[in-house]
Design a protein around this nucleic acid. Structure first.
Length: 737
DNA sequence: TGCTAATGCAA
DNA sequence: TATTGCATTAGCA
């Protein structure tokens, strides 16, 4: 076996450490930058990875800031090699891994850690006080106004503190406990919401402040529950991708959400809390909310601790905002931040607030219908098995099928037999119990997750208010939780019927529009492959056209099998397919799958070239990029493990496509939302399902809204191929889709 | 009670 | 051994 090398590209390593993409942290999670961070990263890679040699390469660097660091690093590395007695040849800084190397690097680390890049002491240089005196509060807001109104980058930080939700119901109504403010680094104040100081009052104060002052907070979407930023209040225009220099010298005050900023700078971090921003950007340690208060009501907690917690968050926002701003500018994501994500955060809030009606009675009736059949199936299954057992337990089910009934066991999982649907489907001819189990599984899923699950989320207004999360996905999509309304069944008729319980308000209808193959169209655009681009200009059925070209048959003579295969390849390409994966999907041999892919790439050579380019760029930079500059760090590309690296390559191919689709949908949402506002319509955007938008529509506005929706979606971006959106109207979600 | 694995739903 | 998510159930510490 060839030797395992840890190849270090100084430029990208230093650049990544500098931008903290991917996350360069020490054991405690504190952010490390520059040479110190790079050294630390190499050491941890060396210790954890299975390497025999280390090789250092570097290229030209344009940014002087990074160039300097690269030179520093190179000097340092050469010193280490000299200490070890390794001869340094021109252009080849390669050295075998040894304990001596690790020790020498650790000594270097210790010698540079005393410098400016070492960790600073975690101290909050900020007094925090608390008040609920109306006069005093008026005075504080007046001071904030006079400070913030002087300059647009005189930020005033605030944080709206909500209580924990009461545990009994799913109702998300969380009480406002107060608002902290900080605009002077030496002091933060927590304003308690009590007596004359109501949540409404505080919200009004913030709304007024936002007219003249740049505000910064953590998780703006939550704070919209009490205030409306002035820039949203007066806005009627859609998305504009203005140049970054006009953003940096913004003419009017803006709202800044450091959570969203931190997410854009590192979207692969699991979740962001204020303490994470404190650690990464301010090098301060902030205790986590659950560590301080658990999940109990904060009303029962020590008032002083509560005020300190809220005050510190404002302080962290004030300190981190300029740093996050600078980093967004450096990474060319300012426009993405200001023009796309910030307005979107308000739209998501508005959609959550609007919610969607789900008919409780119908949900219940649907669930009861399922329960009847489930009971029947249980009986049949127990009889066939010869005993009663928990069908929902893969462990017990595996024992029954593969031991008691002696069916041929195929796949194994970590803990036993696999009983996944694709395995069972192959076993179906062996024993009649298998088909019943599959049906049981399907029904049980529908009942637990959808019939029963969704009913739990219907609130007093008869509507389900999902949470749209903007800072979760690695690619820039939004996600939906509590409940997830982005995975309501569609593919089977029985499941699809669930959609009938989602209805618009009395007298209204739904307008539902979805993009036609947006990801494949983006691939055509980004790859610039003329064949694929032409295919989209030729006609409607892209899969048939692809089949025709790939299999060299006339368009009208494409068989349904050929079309199906072409479709699978089209989809697979977007995910960064392997021939094995394709063979699984189509139930064909790996050889045949490889043949299909080869033919596909011959047909669309630009696609292969594009994918290779994307991978090599990502390897060089450590991240891949969407059309709108959104970055997806891919540390896996530097992994020693082959499978992990392969995964990294698939991610590198997929992220720009999925991410660009997400970007375009976000633009469409902004344009749709403000067009509705501009035209004073009563219709409301209520759902987004990645490539689909649902609007609750006043029947009098149907023509206007369907036209608007289709227009804004199709014109959200101008690509080398047309973007197509299909719009349907119906009196429930089933009909409208 | 909290965590992970297995499973399956969507784009 | 196909991308991105979220919810449920079992099973176990």
């Amino acid at each position: 076996m060839a030797d395992n090398r840890l190849i270090i590209d100084i430029n990208s390593l230093v650049r990544d450490a500098f931008y903290a993409i991917p996350d360069f942290t020490d054991e405690s999670g504190s952010h490390l930058g520059g040479v110190y961070g790079a050294l630390f990263k190499i050491l941890s890679d060396l210790k954890t990875g299975d390497f025999e040699r280390v090789e250092v390469v570097h290229g030209d660097e344009e940014l002087s800031l990074i160039k300097e660091q690269v030179q520093n690093f190179e000097k340092l590395w050469t010193e280490v090699l000299l200490e070890l007695g390794v001869t340094v040849e021109e252009g080849s800084l390669s050295v075998p891994k040894s304990d001596a190397l690790i020790e020498a690097l650790q000594n270097k680390l210790a010698s540079v850690s005393g410098g400016s890049e070492g960790k600073s002491a975690p101290i909050f240089n900020c007094r925090i006080r608390s008040t609920s005196d109306l006069n005093e509060v008026e005075d504080i807001f007046a001071k904030a106004l006079s400070y913030g109104a002087k300059k647009n980058d005189n930020y005033v930080a605030f944080y709206v503190l909500f209580d924990n939700p009461s545990k009994d119901s799913h109702g998300k109504e969380k009480e406002v406990l107060g608002v902290s403010l900080c605009f002077d680094e030496s002091e933060a104040v927590f304003i308690k919401a009590e007596n004359f100081i109501t949540a409404d009052y505080l919200g009004k104060k913030l709304s007024d402040l936002s007219e003249k002052v740049s505000l910064v907070t953590f998780d703006a979407k939550q704070s919209y529950k009490i205030f409306e930023p002035f820039e949203i209040k007066i806005r009627t225009s859609g998305y504009e991708d203005d140049a970054s220099d006009s953003i940096t010298t913004a003419a009017s005050p803006r709202l800044i959400d450091v959570l969203i900023g931190a997410y854009l700078l590192n979207p692969i971090k699991n979740d962001y809390e204020p303490s994470d921003v404190a650690k990464e950007y301010c090098k301060l340690t902030l205790e986590k909310r659950t560590d301080l208060f658990g999940k109990n009501s904060l009303k029962e907690a020590d008032e002083k601790k509560v005020a300190e917690y809220a005050g510190k968050i404002s302080y962290i926002c004030l300190l981190s905002a300029p740093l996050i701003f600078k980093k967004l500018a450096k990474t060319n994501m300012l426009s993405l931040f200001y023009n796309m994500e910030m307005p979107l955060s308000y739209i998501l809030f508005a959609m959550e607030k609007e919610g969607i009606i789900a008919k409780n009675d119908e949900l219940k009736a649907y669930g009861d219908k399922l329960a009847t059949r489930i009971t029947e199936l249980e009986k049949t299954i127990y009889e066939a098995a010869g005993c009663e057992f928990n069908i929902n337990s893969p462990k017990q089910l595996g024992e029954i099928l593969f031991e008691k009934l002696g069916l041929p066991a195929e796949k194994k999982t970590k803990s036993g037999y696999s009983t996944a649907a694709d395995v069972l489907e192959k076993l179906a001819p062996e024993h009649s119990i298998v088909a019943d189990i599959l049906e049981y599984r399907g029904l049980a899923k529908l009942k637990s997750t959808y019939a029963d699950g969704l009913a739990e989320f219907i609130e007093a207004d008869g509507r389900i208010h999902t949470s749209f999360n903007q800072t979760i996905t690695a690619t820039g999509r939004i996600s939906s939780t509590e409940p997830n309304l982005q995975n309501i069944p569609m593919r089977t008729e029985l499941g699809r019927l669930i959609r009938k319980v989602f209805v618009p308000r009395e007298g209204y209808v739904f307008a539902d529009a979805d993009y036609s193959q947006i990801e494949l169209r983006i691939l055509a655009h980004m790859s610039g492959d003329q064949g694929l681009i032409d295919a989209y200009h030729e006609g409607e059925d892209i899969h048939r056209i692809t089949a025709s070209k790939v299999f060299h048959v006339p368009f009208d003579e494409v068989t349904s099998l050929q079309r199906r295969n072409a479709k699978a390849v089209n989809f697979g390409i977007v995910y960064g397919i392997s021939s094995f994966g394709l063979s699984q999907d189509l139930s064909i041999s790996v050889g045949e799958a490889r043949d299909y892919m080869e033919k596909y790439f011959e047909t669309y050579p630009g696609v292969r070239a594009y994918q290779e380019k994307v991978i090599s760029d990502a390897k060089e930079k450590g991240y891949s990029v969407t059309m709108y500059g959104r970055r997806r760090p891919i540390p896996e590309l530097k992994a020693g493990n082959f499978n992990l690296r392969q995964f990294g390559e698939r991610v590198a191919m997929n992220a720009p496509i999925q991410g660009t689709a997400a970007d375009i949908m976000k633009i469409a949402m902004i344009n749709v939302f403000f067009a509705i506002k501009r035209e004073n319509l009563r219709s409301r955007l209520i759902l987004q399902i990645h490539d689909e938008l649902v609007i609750e529509t006043d029947p009098a506005e149907v023509d206007k809204v369907t036209a608007l929706l289709t227009r804004e979606m199709e014109n959200a971006a101008r690509l080398a191929v047309p973007l197509e959106a299909e719009c349907h109207v119906g009196s429930d979600w089933y009909e409208a889709k």
